[in-house]
Nucleic acid binder design. Structure first.
Lengths: 150, 150
DNA sequence: CAAGATATATCGGTAACCAATCCAATTGGA
DNA sequence: TCCAATTGGATTGGTTACCGATATATCTTG
């Protein structure tokens, strides 16, 4: 009664709270999955974005990921050193850098993805069908919420 | 076609991705709301947890927040220095620390909450009614998902 | 009372950011 | 054509956000 209010009222605390906790829980579960050599999560996110969006400029990556350009620049640098992505000068606009997955990066991403998907699916399977539906339905809506936040 | 799969398949990438982005977008919007003196987000989360759960031990806080005990210990220390919470020895078990909001902390939390709620509500208002419903419905479900992840 | 268990605190380190600034290339006039 | 303003990125110099290991009391129980 205290926590659920009339439908129109947004429970801001509830949403931000669950987002933080979920992120940390996911991070922890990832670490459990990968006791061996594991890339920092931020780097994996860059790989994923490249996996989905394909070859991209650094600035576009930053926007997609809601990160500052300088942050992405540094992350890409780390991934280049690790051999997981390539960074080349765009011949059309020589200021720009074209970032792409290397084949090693593609493999790494695929492995990570498989394990992570398995774990998340297991967790979801423990929820009630109603909750599962609610989570699935929320994913695209939350994406649009990100855009609606400034 | 590439991104949406059959209903039963969990889109792990989509969920983790949107969680990260949403968290960063929220953080950014918070900073926009509070150009003046602003507490680090992690500290605010502790205040919130205290606001909901009331007087608590450090270890309980850590569990609620999905954080390591050492992390919470440090955060509480910072909040004590800032005068926003009190930390006293539990007379019943003198190893334990009892953490509670001070009145300054209560005020701070209330202010923060008001502004943040307003902003989040504005963002949600820009979504379609369907999306709004989906987000609202997902909050409790996501909370249970956290528990289901290990 | 002597071992373990517990609850915290502290220390040392890494990851995850951002803002400011610098550089090179591009672009839009005058 | 040349110069100013703009733009894409890299670098630098922070701060925050964590965690693991260890040290210190304090319980608890045989």
């Amino acid at each position: 009664m205290a926590s659920s209010q009339c439908a129109g009222t947004v429970d801001a605390r509830g949403l931000t709270d669950v987002i933080s906790r979920l992120r940390r829980a996911l991070r922890r579960s990832i670490r459990t999955d990968y006791p061996w050599e594991l890339r920092p999560v931020a780097q994996v996110e860059v790989l994923q974005s490249l996996g989905e969006g394909g070859v991209t400029r650094v600035g576009d990556l930053a926007e997609r990921l809601c990160l500052a350009q300088s942050t992405v620049s540094a992350l890409v640098g780390q991934l280049v050193s690790a051999g997981l992505v390539t960074r080349d000068v765009d011949p059309a606009d020589r200021r720009a850098a074209i970032v792409a997955l290397s084949s090693a990066g593609r493999t790494d991403l695929r492995n990570w993805d498989t394990a992570h998907r398995r774990r998340l699916r297991a967790a979801l399977a423990r929820l009630s069908p109603t909750d599962q539906r609610a989570v699935l339905a929320a994913v695209p809506a939350l994406g649009r919420l990100v855009d609606a936040l400034d």
